[in-house]
Computed example of a mutant assay.
Amino acid sequence: MKTLFAKTTIAGLLLGASLLAQAADIPRTPSPAGAEVYIISPKDGATVPGTFKVQFGLKGMGVAPAGVDVPDTAHHHLMVDLKEQPDLNAPLPNNDTIRHFGKGQTETEITLSPGKHTLQLIMGDKSHIPLNPSVESKKITVNVK
């Protein structure tokens, strides 16, 4: 039984390493020259209630849902209080700090705890992989009452 467990564990580790190596080989979609993403509202430094609307702006490219392969399009990901840049060569995770808008949404309502928070947008391709070069907004700060 121990031998079977050891073999299964080793096989799992090898499969995981293989998948990570393959993820590094995924080609990134080129971003259109001059493309820009930005946060329309709230404004940098704004004081907001616990639940508030975030509106996304985009210039020089279009929005398409995840899974749709149309040239010069991508979809938004909102990074909330992200401390370090995500891996730009892999699909962006979907969690509390990186929120996916894979249906092509251009705004959302979020709820944050009182205090200072940062917001930033990054565009992902049909597979949630950041464009190359990445199209990211300026990081803004909001104060939640």
Rank of each mutant, 00 (worst) to 15 (best):
N132R: 13
K53Q: 13
G12L: 14
A6L: 07
S41R: 15
V142N: 05
G67H: 14
V70P: 12
Q105M: 01
T9I: 09
N132M: 09
G12Y: 06
T141W: 07
Q105S: 06
L88K: 12
A46G: 12
A6K: 08
I10D: 11
V48S: 11
G102P: 01
D44L: 02
D44K: 03
M79C: 07
G115Y: 03
K43F: 15
G62Q: 09
A90W: 13
L4W: 09
P49K: 14
G104F: 13
P86F: 02
D44A: 10
L121P: 04
Q85V: 01
V144E: 05
Q120A: 06
Q120D: 01
T108G: 04
S137P: 05
G115D: 09
P114G: 00
P91T: 05
G50Y: 13
R99I: 08
F101Y: 14
T111S: 11
P32K: 06
G50P: 09
G102K: 03
A21K: 03
T9L: 15
H117D: 05
V142A: 04
T29D: 09
I110H: 09
L78V: 02
H75M: 07
H77L: 07
H76M: 06
L13D: 00
A6D: 14
K2M: 12
H76Y: 15
I129Y: 14
H128K: 00
K103Q: 07
L121K: 01
K43C: 14
D81R: 06
F52N: 04
P91S: 03
G50M: 09
I122E: 05
G102A: 00
V135T: 08
L20G: 15
I10S: 08
G104L: 06
E136Q: 15
L131S: 06
Q22H: 12
V80F: 02
A35F: 02
T8Q: 15
K126R: 08
N89I: 01
I10L: 14
S134H: 11
S134D: 11
K53F: 08
K103P: 00
V80D: 10
G16P: 03
L78H: 07
P86K: 02
N143P: 00
E136G: 05
A6V: 05
T118D: 06
G45R: 05
P71M: 11
I122T: 07
Q120T: 04
H76I: 01
A64I: 02
T3L: 11
G60S: 10
F52D: 03
L4V: 09
